[in-house]
Design a protein around this nucleic acid. Structure first.
Lengths: 228, 228, 228, 228
DNA sequence: CATGAATGAGTCTTCATTCAT
DNA sequence: AATGAATGAAGACTCATTCAT
């Protein structure tokens, strides 16, 4: 019965043909995005050719187009991927689910996020190019998405600042929304990279401290009397 | 003088007769840059064609190439022009030649610079597009020049912070280099535009104050009387 | 057994067991031609893709190529099929095996053929597109085959005219070959369709009569009594 | 004064540059259409490449696109050109402006039109291919235009038949609209070419006479008694 | 036997740049 | 000095066909 069942009905019992190995679609797409990241980074969006990317991915151009409808949409894919990486690195470091306990601990979280992002960008410098500056085919839509990235991170920071305010950690008069935005601008590594990248270890450490110091004064209640 | 003026171009020309009106070369170039700014802004670098630009400038394509060697170099020209405008707006507001007298006065200078830049970008929004985001042909060289813009402004801010430190206006432990950089990041209107642009007048004012407050705490000695 | 199962192909197969259902090859081909007719008709030969056709037939592309060696040859198949349908509709109506008995009866046969073809084309308008106009891949060979269709019908009509001449039904001086050709041109519905299709019932009837009248005078002896 | 007028004002006094030789645009287009006719005829629309056509015209591909916006529109141009040729050949032969005087004279006009068209198609066989059969990219729009050609000729013939009816030349009961259409179908050389092209001189003459005879009986009042 | 993923040759089209006038 | 017609290299994208499963 079960045997017969296989040969009956117009049901598209796809089966006899080459079974696509299960994760194929996802694997291909990942392979393609990786190649695109590499080529876009090296040549820039405009100068990168689909042929380049296909070659880099080790597949034919036709195959490329099986998984990606156009060059432009490939850029979107790459962009989404990069944003995901960035947000995915920052979010756990900020630990948005529990309110901060002390000014120092809040500062520590920001520091952790900076560290995580710095580490990410050191490990995969291409992401920096793609997220922050590779604004090649920067049409309106993509600009919005780029701003969206900073906004996303800024929103996360703002939420944290609100919790901090509730806990009495923010200095009097500080606006948590604004603080979230400015802290993000101040701490988001893409912006810092240009400086930090050109310093030696000692210089980096000095800058790192100075930056956190800057933020502490800008944001937090003064603990110096209580603890200093 | 007129003789010298004619020395442009290699061909020795007749000394008498109507020489091309002296400023012609400069005027043409300005005309071309203006057209390029308009077209690049509207279409984006990649989609802008040299034909577009020539038409917009009211000249022939051939003429365009008499004054600009290539599309890429035209972008450089446009970029330089934009940077010049931005720096030219910020510099006088900061009054780098005289050291700041009080924390409040220093803050006032930063505020003045922000106002000047905001006004510039409101009046000529294309500049924003070109300087901040129009990264179409963003090859390595251009990226550096873009970062260079922020660096230039940041250097100016840092110089001011040094003077402030000498005058005892900076809070203890503040690093003037870092402060210059971070103040720039915090105050450079392109970055703020996304937020401010979406608020009503009241919201803008609130943000404006919060931002300056942020900077005051981050940078300056406390004048509030409690500690000063 | 499973090993042997792979041996299909040209390899001599085991005499027992379930042979592929006998008509399978033919059924598949019919299924494919039907799909091709549909897709060619809708998209035109050039814009139709083999993937379209396979999908429409509910089979894989690979399977398609088991039964049809190339897209071009598939067009031939489709064409042959269409011609077969057309000739198959006209032939019985003309009753070539028995000579016509009277001018009126001959005219009646032409009329019957027209009716049969009209009905065919009304029922399956795709055939019209394919036979008469779908000349997409119209290379020399296909053009000849298309002309051949009309020739075939014209030859049938000419044979009938010869019989009519033998029976004294043709007006004096009429050339049966030429008459066959011209009657075909005049009566073959594809040509008429453009006109008849745009008229109401009454108009169609009027045209129908006028056309037969035209043919009667062109071909036949006058039965009106005045001269006959 | 008129001389001076040319060099004043911001009026786009295009002038200093390369003056396009006056008929250039038209000449180029004609050159391109000629090349397209040749290449389309030889390869068929689909297989013809724009590179082929440019090469055949002795110009670069870019130049081709200065004068023709796309391959498809080039086909339209070619088509229009062909129709113009055909109609231009038939119209004067039919002398639509003066009513026919006798059956024989009317027949003579049809004959003249046939001769003119035959001569045209003998001299420029490509036109036949393009007008009658080269239905390559036969989308709906082009089909309509093709039908339109026959319709145009048929309308001309119908007009003539109406005049003939008014002059009492048409046989009783003949519908001039239908007669115009059928005469066109019968006489339009593209349809006849297949037969006439395959006969020797004598055969052609015989056919030619038979066809006119066919039309005379189909259309006209019987002069045989009066004159025969 | 069936399948559909993979392929890459082949096309139309654009545009920076040149140069005859 | 100015013009714009001409050029051709280059690239995104399609699809008939093959073949591993």
């Amino acid at each position: 019965m079960t045997l017969d069942a296989e040969r009956r009905g117009p049901v598209p019992r796809r089966g006899r043909g080459r079974p696509p190995s299960p994760g194929l679609e996802d694997r291909r797409r990942a392979q393609i995005i990786a190649a695109a990241v590499a080529v876009f980074t090296e040549r820039g969006y405009t100068d990168a050719t689909m042929a380049d990317i296909a070659r880099h991915a080790g597949i034919g151009q036709g195959t490329l187009y099986r998984y990606v409808p156009s060059k432009r949409e490939l850029l979107d894919l790459v962009f989404d991927y990069s944003v995901e990486q960035v947000v995915g690195a920052a979010e756990p470091a900020l630990r948005l689910d529990e309110p901060p306990r002390s000014p120092a601990e809040l500062l520590g979280r920001f520091d952790a996020a900076v560290q995580a992002l710095t580490e990410l960008f050191n490990r995969r410098p291409e992401l920096l190019a793609l997220v922050a500056v590779e604004a090649a085919a920067m049409d309106e839509e993509l600009k919005l998405r780029l701003l969206g990235l900073e906004s996303t991170v800024a929103r996360m920071a703002a939420r944290l600042c609100e919790d901090a305010q509730d806990a009495g950690l923010l200095r009097a008069g500080a606006d948590p929304q604004v603080c979230g935005l400015l802290v993000t601008k101040t701490l988001l590594p893409p912006g810092l990279r240009q400086v930090l990248g050109q310093l030696d270890e000692a210089g980096r450490t000095r800058y790192h401290r100075a930056i956190l110091d800057f933020v502490r004064h800008a944001l937090l209640v003064d603990e110096s009397g209580a603890q200093g």
